[in-house]
Structures are given as structure tokens and as C-alpha cells.
Amino acid sequence: MRRDLGWWALLLPAFLLMTVLYVAPILQVLAISVTEPTLGAQNYNRLLTNAGVQRVVWTTLRIGLLTTALALLLGYALAYVIALARPAAQRWWLLGVLLPLWISVLVRAFAWVTLLRRQGLLNQGLQATGLIDAPLPLVWNEFGVVVGMVHYMVPYAVLPMLASMREIDPRLLAAARGLGASRGTVFGRVFLPLSLPGVVAAAVLVFIFSLGFYITPAILGGGKTLMAAEWIKLQILDLVRWGMGAMLATVLVAAILATLAVFSRVVDLRRLFGARA
């Protein structure tokens, strides 16, 4: 018993640091959300009554889900190619996937703006080839936001799915073919089900990340597509409505915890965050 106590005492500094720097501010946000401007749940009532708040929540969810779906689709295809590539090729593919992670999110967002804007590379190229007459609205709208976010999230989708695919014994795939299954059936009945834990893990990771996106939607949305994080910043810094901002921040945290709680029943969360089970 006493020895156990000693070990716990070693954890104490870290625990205090976490409490002071992390838990306390969150609790404070929670407190603000029910005390500003007056004590009560009036901020949370807005969630049910205020169309503006509802639109932001809906936009955030919609973009989050869309981003998750697209990042998973692209990420799965990439992970599949990488998992089946020769070891030497795998290293180059992985480098290609991870490279964007080392470039600032700001730089990437502006890069997309230059690519997608009216006089951007894409629109000019399409016009030059005569495919379109007028430039397409590719940025400063939801489309642009989703493009930027998917681009940002694909590596995060690839990694858990690739880990899951790498654990699949290649002999299982050969065995399935030897037993008479076509390539398509092998994929559908053996590969896909066995890679599913990675897909679920990637989905949780990408969705949670997507809910809290700030810079990418702020730049590529051009102020018209408001997601939760930007709206919170607007409430607090520009409108000085601390209570409303804190309310949505709390809702965001609650939504993330709820997502984790639901999926912790399906997947091993320790794997999601990199620990080997």
C-alpha cells in the first residue's frame, strides 16, 4: 500500500500541471457559459431557439461529416496502395503522405486559395482548355473549406488504416483466392472486414479533428462559411459575448467526448492514439 502511494506521489506534479493548465480552464469555460451575462441556462436555450447558432452547428456537423467521408475514401485508397506496394515503394508513398504534415496549415490554406480562386491556376487552366466559359466558384465557400480540410486530414486517415491493413496476414488473401474467391470477393469478404478497425479509428480521429477546425475554414470559407471554432472566436473577440462563445465551446467538447465514448465501445482507443495494445 505505502509503496503504491509513493508511485502515485511521483505522478502528482504532472497531475497538478494538468489540472491547472488544462482542466481548470475548461471548467472555467463551463462556468462562464452558465453565468454570462446572467446565471442560468439561457445560453444553452439559444441552441434551441437561435437560428444563427443552429446554422453554425449544422454547418460544422455537415462539413465535419463530409470531410470525414471524403478523407476516409481517399485515405483508404491510398493506404490500400501503400499496404500492397513493395517495401521500397512503401517508403516513398509514406513520405508523400506525411510531407504535407510538415507544412504550416496557414501556408497550405493560402496555397489552396491561389489554386482555386477565380483567377487561380485551376480556373485559368479550365478556361484555357475551353471546358468552362466563366470561372467556377471554387473557394470562399463550403467547397473550398472541404477541399482544404480533406487535404489536411488525409494523412491522419491513412495512418490508422494503414496500420490495420499491415496487420492482415497476406497468406489470408492468398488462401481466399486458393479457395476460389475472385479478387473482388477477396477484397469484400476478407480484406475489407479485417481492415475495418482501422477505418473506424480513422473516422473517429478525422471527425473529432474536423469539428474543431479554425484556420482552414477561416481562410478558405472567406467569412461566409462559419464553423464552430470561428464562430466562437467571433463571439468572444469581436462581439464580446463571452457566454455564447463559452456555451458553444462547451458543446464542442461535449460532442467530442460523446463521440469518443460511443466509439470506445467499438475500437480500442489506445490504438487510435498510438499506443500499442
Partner: peptide, 30 residues
């Protein structure tokens, strides 16, 4: 898959996500 040969792999290569019956049913199902 068109040779119609049964094969027992080294290490057996049973499908871990299927039950014994589903494993055995696999070649019939396909």
C-alpha cells in the same frame, strides 16, 4: 481461384473474423 484445388497453408491461414463454420463455408459461398 479457377483451379479448384484445396490448400492448407503453413500456419493454416484461417480467417480470424469468421467462425469455424463460416471459414469452412467460405469456398462454398464464393
Amino acid at each position: 481461384e479457377r483451379r479448384d484445388f484445396g490448400m492448407v497453408f503453413q500456419g493454416y491461414a484461417l480467417f480470424p473474423h469468421m467462425t469455424v463454420a463460416e471459414n469452412v463455408a467460405f469456398p462454398l459461398r464464393v
